[in-house]
Design a protein around this nucleic acid. Structure first.
Ligand code: NAD
Ligand code: NAD
Lengths: 252, 252
DNA sequence: AGGAGCTTGTGAACGTGAGAACAAAATCGA
DNA sequence: TCGATTTTGTTCTCACGTTCACAAGCTCCT
């Protein structure tokens, strides 16, 4: 293998066998593409085939895969099953991860009803909510339990991943409870910036932000002309009045 | 202002008044932070204050804001209301964007019930589904309509944004219909890579991918030792047998 | 007036990511 | 056996993103 080179400039800083973050984010896409090919009975695929299925360029895909090791065959391509296993192993979904969902409202219900997680390396072990009227409700083959049982459940089921689907208000508090209970990865749907100690990973899914990014590009397509009138520094350093009310609220 | 420099190396390529993509993705976060400050009655904030509220570093925030113009006051900070308006205008959420949601199952219901979009620059004008038993159902003050009415609705309400919450199977077909009807921005929740013509923007939200990224880091925390045994090229170039079944499905 | 104290806006350095291009390795046919 | 063909793995270069560090500019106090 490549001998340990001493920090060539331009090379991404990675710890031993560490994989660049951008690559990590694409591995699940490749995994899904491989599963699709496998389901179609395709045994071998070239980087070009895979890249098309995953919606990326083939040079990028080859470089991404090269971080995992040398799993292809020149002149032939990649063995679909074998590569799939290698990626799954690298991501860590050859085993199942226990997950709790906190806040069983609109979104929590949707997630609880979703069957796609089980086939992708995750097992929902508990649905938790603080509202007494929700506790005890059956969703599929699960029952909503009291948020107070969190610590017990995390310890019993070795839960390392928590999903937050409460309103924004209590989200930080819920987050703190999760962390204190031993959860070290959090997926947050509430529109707030959560703070967590070092060692805890957090990812956020924010639909309003996604839509606003689309809106930015949409506005651009309509042509600069369509931009609202620019009030050039009308009332800086003073009482700013008469600005129209604008989107971007912090609602629960 | 800065005179038009001729392509200095190291400077991001940006069209006239274009904003780097990474910055665009953060502007909605700043917008939300500003709204929160405003709601707390705070009239002025320094880049440090804002950066803390938005969860980023203050140099980055200042540079991001500098792409919009020079809206701060040295020695003082930013006027909260004024900056909020400027960001909202840049993103394009001073006006409301019409949105249709296609596929009113678990997730579609959750989105339809969500009140947060209206306050953030978006107006849901239709809920569409192909299933006859769903058409006519009331959700809040809206009624589920037949997907066949898509073209009519898009034209009537000048819809430019579509949200896809159908299963993976029909997603590309639905996407094509949306594009043909005139929708030019799509937010996709189905776990497939959609292909769209140039000029159409697409963003995807994929919960399984988010969880798998967390799983990768989680596995790493448990220590290299916990990695599953590495079958070093056991059956390459031949019939690959006995690989455990792994997560990453392409389910509907 | 003038200086002290802050805070912005931005140049410059550094790190990460993307893609073109090609040598190395494998297969296949003659 | 050898050359033609295919496709990987990797290097090189350029583009993009982040962070530091500081001059420029504003306010307030003396
Ligand atoms: N529904 C959507 O489509 C949507 C879209 C974008 C963002 N979000 C965000 O997702 C989150 C959930 O949205 P929703 O529509 O499901 O909200 P919801 O109000 O329907 O559900 C929230 C649930 O959290 C529970 N809860 C409140 N405080 C709690 C606490 N301290 N501990 C445990 N549970 C608690 C409530 O009892 C309720 O069941 C919100 O933050 C919302 O802003 C939702
Ligand atoms: N529910 C979740 O929590 C969750 C999580 C991750 C991903 N997803 C993805 O989001 C999507 C929706 O999930 P869901 O749980 O709401 O699914 P669902 O099956 O509950 O709902 C899908 C809806 O789409 C409608 N539909 C099907 N074909 C259609 C067509 N051609 N035109 C219009 N409508 C059509 C169906 O009638 C149904 O109402 C899926 O792709 C799923 O993989 C969902």
């Amino acid at each position: 293998m490549t001998p340990a080179r001493s920090r060539r400039p331009g090379a991404p800083t990675r710890t031993e066998r560490g994989i660049p973050e951008a690559t990590v984010a694409r591995l699940p896409v490749y995994l899904r593409a491989l599963t699709a090919l496998s389901d179609s009975g395709i045994a071998t695929a070239s980087s070009e085939d895979l890249a098309t299925a995953a919606g990326v360029n083939s040079a990028k895909l080859r470089k991404d895969l090269s971080y995992l090791g040398s799993y292809g065959t020149r002149g032939v391509g990649y063995d679909v099953e074998y590569l799939r296993y290698q990626i799954a192993r690298e991501i860590g979904v050859t085993q199942d991860w226990a997950v709790v969902i906190v806040g069983i409202g609109n979104l929590g219900h949707a997630l609880a009803n979703y069957s796609g997680f089980g086939t992708r390396g995750f097992r929902i072990v508990a649905l938790l909510d603080a509202a007494p009227e929700l506790v005890g409700e059956k969703i599929g083959d699960m029952v909503v339990r009291d948020f107070a049982e969190l610590e017990e459940i995390v310890a019993a089921d070795r839960v390392s991943i928590g999903v937050i689907t409460t309103p924004a208000g209590p989200a930080q508090e819920v987050c703190d409870r999760l962390v204190a209970a031993g959860v070290t990865s959090i997926l947050n749907f509430a529109p707030v910036v959560l703070s967590v100690p070092d060692g805890v990973d957090i990812r956020k899914v924010d639909l309003s932000i996604e839509l606003q990014i689309l809106a930015y590009h949409e506005q651009r397509k309509s042509g600069e002309a369509a931009l609202p009138p620019v009030p050039e520094l009308p009332a800086m350093n003073g009482v700013v009045t008469d600005l129209p009310s604008v989107g971007g609220g912090v609602g629960a």
